[in-house]
Design a protein around this nucleic acid. Structure first.
Length: 113
DNA sequence: AAGTTGACTATTT
DNA sequence: AAAATAGCCAACT
């Protein structure tokens, strides 16, 4: 098969991002930038956020395991409230947040081997 | 088709 | 340590 290389990553960009997110084990987290690199899309952290935002509700993609580089769940501009849901799910998975709502990335960041 | 937007990040105040 | 700045880049309008 013969693909048109002029087309950017195109639609399979999202697929690759989702695949990377699916690799994050429960009890661990990854940052947007980390997921981007893992998906072979370095420097495209914002696109990862975009992809997750587009995710349908019943998805099997563990979107809650992706947090920002400061160790906090990223604030949405709209539909506020999901942040706390995200925190709750992560706590269920064993991730600990400190009193300021932050995760110690030194401890919980997923390091693929 | 050009300008805006954003679930980002690294750097500088 | 928290907030503003600047750089980023594809999706969206």
């Amino acid at each position: 098969m013969h693909y048109d290389r002029r087309l950017p990553e195109s639609r399979d960009t999202y697929t690759r991002i989702y695949a990377a997110v699916r690799r994050i084990p429960a009890g661990k987290v990854a940052t947007y930038g980390q997921v981007a690199s893992l998906a072979g899309l370095p420097r495209r952290a914002r696109q990862v956020g975009y992809a997750l935002h587009a995710l349908p509700e019943g998805s099997d993609v563990p979107w809650q395991r992706v947090i920002n580089a400061r160790g906090e769940v990223s604030p949405r501009t709209a539909s506020i409230g999901w942040e706390s849901v995200q925190v709750q799910i992560l706590e269920t998975e064993g991730v600990v947040f400190d009193e300021s709502g932050r995760v110690d990335l030194e401890v919980y960041r997923w390091e693929p081997s």
